[in-house]
Amino acid sequence: MQNPAIRLKAAGLKFQSVGPIDLEVAAGRCLAVSGPSGAGKSLTLKMIADLVPHEGDCLVDGVSAMSISGPAWRRQVRYVSSEPGWWAPTVGGHFADAAAQGDNLQRLFLDPSLLDAAPDRLSTGERQRMAFLRAIEDRPKVLLLDEPTSALDPVSAKALEALVKERMAQGCVVVLTSHDPEQVERLADSVMTLARPT
């Protein structure tokens, strides 16, 4: 039986030469995944999100990813790439309620008019921030943040981190990859270091 304080648990995750990986993260905590390039940091997040075929299993609040559909799993376990995909003709079309984003847009220094723009008209940093807001709109239980501020200036990065901390205060689990050691220090409660596969 899973400890009720443990919101996310992964056991035996393995894909190609990455893994097996075991981890546990309590509600409201952040785990940073570190390691050299090629160690499988992004792949680890994708395995947790069930976006690639893999061995092992993940559980959220004791419920196994294998017991529910992929889309249902990803509604509660959200992977956020450093350069996410876009499918609607406008940025606002990616939100259930774009009009409700006003406060968060302001906090991330984003002009509301960007919601009416095509995604490719935004800068990389603007797309990163919009993708983060898209990811947290329906309040998933787990956020998998893959270099979430790689294209942001320090002020914008810290503004996004403030929203991450708010989600954690509400019980969200965060698993983070970041090349910024100061960001890891600000956000992470623990660090898991991966070795480059041999």
Rank of each mutant, 00 (worst) to 15 (best):
M1N: 13
Q2H: 10
I6K: 06
Q16F: 08
G19R: 05
L23R: 09
E24R: 14
V25S: 03
V25C: 05
C30T: 08
C30I: 00
V33P: 02
S34A: 12
G35W: 02
S37R: 06
S37K: 03
G38W: 04
G40S: 12
K41D: 01
S42G: 10
L43R: 10
L45N: 03
D50M: 06
D50T: 12
G56A: 07
D57V: 09
S69Q: 12
P71L: 11
A72I: 08
A72L: 09
R75A: 12
Q76D: 14
V77G: 06
S82T: 08
S82E: 15
A88M: 13
D97R: 15
A99E: 13
L105F: 05
R107I: 01
L108Y: 06
L110K: 03
L110Y: 01
L122C: 15
E126L: 08
R129I: 05
A131D: 03
L133V: 11
R134H: 10
A135M: 06
E137N: 12
R139M: 10
K141I: 05
V142E: 06
L143V: 06
L144H: 00
A151Y: 01
L160A: 09
L163G: 04
V164Y: 02
R167K: 14
R167C: 10
Q170N: 15
G171N: 03
C172R: 01
V173I: 07
L176W: 03
D180I: 05
P181K: 09
E182L: 12
E182D: 14
E182P: 00
A188F: 03
S190C: 02
T198G: 12
